[in-house]
Design a protein around this nucleic acid. Structure first.
Lengths: 332, 332
DNA sequence: CTGAAAGCGCTTACAG
DNA sequence: CTGAAAGCGCTTACAG
């Protein structure tokens, strides 16, 4: 900037004015500054500018997700990025892998970078440690899972109702014995979905059987093994509900392995690429992940722009997509 | 920091020493500083520190990808993030969507953030504009596609050879008429794969037929439509090679739609989740995307650490995974 | 409309 | 081992 000022024969302050598009600059001087900046390929230093600025804005936000390499996380990142880019804001991304330790680490790192706001799919269950930062003016928007012991905005799907609808669908097809596979029970949505499953059973007067309700499954292989084991048990279910993408894929694999894919019904939570090309095509409860990301970004920037109202609590509806696997009637 | 110094009754400089783990600090003073920092929940300001530091390091790198929401890009981001986190470096991510304009925009933004280095899957074909930045000390590592008109490190798969191996495989199964579907011909890897296809045909003395070689296909739907159209043509191929994930999925859909999936062979470039669960399971040329990301990150940090040697050119091998669809013999 | 001085939070370079 | 002064690149607050 100093060099630009020298080359354009103006003061530092005038260069600063031109760079920041302040209107009160003589057209001729502005042109001279711009030409000098061009010639020197001057790039303003965001960090230095943020340091002195009144608002201290860094033009950076943070997005902390479960795992950037899974489609859910990646879609959230992408939609947030889209909104951020319209405002020339850059996005720092990080994966928490369900580790509260990493959550602490990465939020600390974001705070040292003085990000203007954070979108987070949290791994921990106690967010009091964010209070200070929040009160200092950094907004946090929680996605997919609510904040614990902290008042903050949240955006999520109606997991419980969505699951209940799906399980009710299986019941309507005639199933009375429905297996359930769920993710780690520490995860909010996993709990919600299990509740939704129990809601639907209860409404139909069916009592749950722990032998066919398995939680804390995290991978395709774990789900595959579990379904295989249950299929070989004394009184196997006639249908399965799987609480997450990978578990659905694992169930597909197990049913296929047992050549039962056309006899045993299956509904999964969350849609996935190729679900419609499997045989049978897989019936799912689809979440609108892009909408979740967009909403979260919208709220975050609203907060950054000064919105100080009560915390928002946005619930995005889910949709049952019937494709075949969920419409297989019970054999008996 | 000022407050911490006041509370600990030491100078600014001493606080700075403690924060940066300089060894020459009295143990007692250090303890007092740490306690004060804890009490005030002091978070050092990376930006301010970078501003004054000799090396000017921001502890941030940039990763510019094609589209964070596709598995290839997401995997690269994830593996880079992994390496960066070990060094407490944060990662700014961005999607270019094959737009040279966005590439300019986002590299400019990264430069204003004074990132310590950039990993990029480029969209443009002229990277001279990065020269100045590069000479000023910001290393760039190109992934999946080489730099143009710029000397820089690159990490990519052996697309051409991998494709040739796959097409040769189809020829060995007995196919002489093999359709080809490729991505936008502006993309380096799309060109490479087409060359690999032509290499294999030539080696077998088969002349290519433009009627069944289609490029510039970008989506599942486009690939599906194209395959459907070709299947209805006068002289359809007995096998297809698809140059990319989405195109493979589109081909699967089209073959399925025509109920030809067990008659017409298919090999796709790049593996995808569920490929092994389709019927028939899909034979693919798999790239080791995680290895590409890891290598790129490794090289980037080596450069950041001062490596000034000649540009690296790393080629990661691909692997043919036979699963069934590629082993279907021609009907005639 | 333009500029000289001060200061953001930190580290450097130096003196003690 | 510790600290007072200067300065990184920028914006603020003020004077002209």
């Amino acid at each position: 900037m100093k060099d630009v000022a020298a080359l354009a024969r103006v003061s530092l302050k005038t260069v600063s004015r031109v760079i920041n598009d302040e209107p009160t600059v003589n057209v001729e001087l502005a042109a001279r500054v711009r030409q000098a900046a061009e010639q020197l390929r001057y790039q303003p230093n965001f960090g230095a500018s943020a340091l002195r600025r009144r608002d201290g804005r860094s033009s950076t936000i943070g997005v902390l997700l479960e795992d950037l390499s899974n489609p859910f996380s990646a879609t959230i990142f992408r939609t947030v990025e889209e909104v951020a880019n319209q405002r020339s804001v850059s996005v720092l991304g990080g994966s928490l892998d369900e580790s509260p330790g990493r959550e602490r680490q990465l939020t600390t790192s974001l705070s040292r970078h003085r990000v203007d706001g954070v979108i987070i799919v949290p791994a921990s269950h106690d967010h009091q440690y964010l209070r200070q930062e929040q009160e200092a003016g950094t907004p946090f928007v929680f996605v997919d899972r609510p904040p614990s012991l902290l008042r903050a905005d949240q955006v999520r799907s109606n997991s419980r109702e969505g699951t209940a609808v799906a399980v009710r669908h299986l019941i309507e097809v005639g199933h009375r014995r429905i297996g359930y596979l769920g993710d780690a029970s520490t995860i909010f949505t996993a709990q919600e979905r299990r509740w939704g499953y129990l809601d639907a059973l209860e409404r139909a007067g069916i009592s749950a059987d722990d032998a066919i309700v398995v939680q804390d499954l995290r991978t395709i292989d774990a789900a595959c093994d579990t379904v295989s084991r249950i299929l070989r048990s004394k009184n196997p279910p006639t249908a399965f509900f799987t609480g997450q993408n990978l578990l659905t894929m694992g169930a597909v694999r197990a049913l296929r392995g047992a050549a039962m894919q056309h006899e045993i019904a299956l509904v999964g939570f969350d849609d996935f690429l190729m679900a419609d090309l499997l045989e049978p095509a897989v019936t799912v409860v689809a979440q609108d992940v892009a909408a979740m990301g967009r909403e979260a970004a919208r709220i975050l920037f609203q907060r950054i722009d000064g919105d100080r109202s009560e915390p928002y609590r946005v619930v995005i509806p889910t949709e049952l997509i019937t494709r075949g696997s969920g419409e297989i009637p019970p054999a008996r």
